[in-house]
Nucleic acid binder design. Structure first.
Lengths: 249, 249
DNA sequence: TCAAAAGTGTTCCACATACACCCATGA
DNA sequence: TCATGGGTGTATGTGGAACACTTTTGA
């Protein structure tokens, strides 16, 4: 740590949030339309400058509230990665710390103070380049999606996409959407319910749907990652995604 | 991204490097002794302020050179995580971006401009609190070690701890040191050589040691993560560490 | 009665584990 | 010739993949 004064350089620091949800059977990302330069009119991840005396998660939470109208943190939020000061903002060196939010579908307000049209967009289309993203947000989104995909393998965070009580089929729909697979319902059921420390039976049943009613589950207490505390719960053995999807071999 | 001027706050940004290596059968971390306040006299991770116009990896590489006398990057370097401006430096808000370096044992110079006694220390002892670390470096080290441990499972980065050509036994010694295990030599041999896209036989043999000479291997071209390019090579199926070591269950 | 979805049982096979055994070197 | 470590073969067990089959609802 070099403190041989002269004064160290100072940088503006932003937080960006890749908020992901599953709806309509697909992984969706929260994007806003920029109302100001640079990249006015482009889509972008919600985010903004860190204020003095703020922590990173704190800043990310605040920006989410400001730009998407989210009253309280609707899911699981963790730091993703930093992208760094050189060459990513036409105004100069800006460091951004990207975050990942996994949440059940929540409503977003139409407009905030400096962003409009917050809304959900299918990740598949966004990554395919159908919308032009500001800054290096396309790269950030791509990294975030890969992180989310691998998180589902070895952590109970798939449940972060579900409401507090959910059926196995709803959880499986999350995995299918995030991994873009069609997992076998029977094997998934056995694996999910058989993994110790993952799910807890509420005793209640779903109703109203076609077919036989399904048991409702919640996250087991020891896996409670939604509230920040212990985000380190691990599924052992992991729920492996089919090898074809890990990007090689 | 909130650019509703007033000017955004600016923060000093540092990079810290958790440089890990394996020697004497144990995982070791590179620490320096601080010559200046704050935490004068404490041990710390090498690191320092990011300069204008620098990228993060660039800054980490430079600091490693300055504080440990490393001419060129001796191994695999990747970003670990950022630790947030609030409450980690007595001088005020400082954001640090921690990095992880996995490298074969390399010599470090005794002193730099603002750090002395750069040297390798057993991770086990450091995590046990035998040395007092500056700032939140103990937390950073702990996160780094956990990252390194899981990296070995699903990536070919164990080889980053080895010289360019190595025997299976040397590679196994890396896994044993990082995971604090004693893997079965025979099964490890089969698994390592049998994993497609991991190792490549050089045709050469080791000599001089006791026992039968061992074949020398190198990282397969498609797994070349040492040169930054494709750090995303994946071992499939992974080399699982014994369940007892994942910290639960 | 039929379609649809939940949930169980069973078979098959890949692979991790454990370990017997042989090979090639230095002392 | 013995000790040491390299490397192969093989039996056993666990768990994932595939799928037949039963259960329980809505239409």
């Amino acid at each position: 740590m070099n403190t041989s004064y002269p004064e160290p350089a100072r940088f503006p620091v932003t937080v960006d949030v890749v908020a992901l949800t599953v709806s309509a059977g697909a992984l969706q990302v929260l994007l806003i339309t920029r109302l100001i330069e640079p990249f006015k009119g482009s889509m972008a991840l919600p985010g903004g400058f860190v204020l003095p005396g703020e922590g990173l998660i704190e800043a990310a939470t605040r920006e989410l509230a400001e730009e998407a109208g989210v009253a309280e943190q609707p899911g699981y939020l963790e730091q993703l990665q930093s992208y760094g000061p050189k060459g990513r903002d036409p105004r100069g060196d800006v460091l951004t710390v990207a975050h990942l939010l996994l949440a059940p579908n929540f409503p977003v307000i139409a407009a905030g103070s400096d962003a409009a049209s917050a809304g959900w967009y299918p990740v598949k289309d966004v990554l395919a380049g159908e919308y032009s993203l500001a800054f290096d947000h396309a790269e950030i989104l791509s990294d975030a999606v890969e992180r989310a995909r691998s998180k589902l393998e070895y952590s109970p965070l798939g449940a972060a996409f579900c409401t507090p009580e959910f059926t196995i089929a709803q959880l499986r729909a999350v995995y299918d959407a995030v991994w873009d697979t069609k997992l076998d319902p029977r094997n998934f059921h056995r694996k999910a319910t058989g993994t110790p420390g993952f799910l807890e039976d509420t005793g209640k049943m779903s109703t109203g749907e076609a077919g036989r009613p399904a048991a409702l589950f919640r996250l087991a207490p020891q896996a409670h990652t939604t509230r920040a505390a212990c985000a380190h719960a691990v599924l052992n053995p992991p729920l492996m995604r089919p090898a074809a999807l890990t990007g090689q071999d």
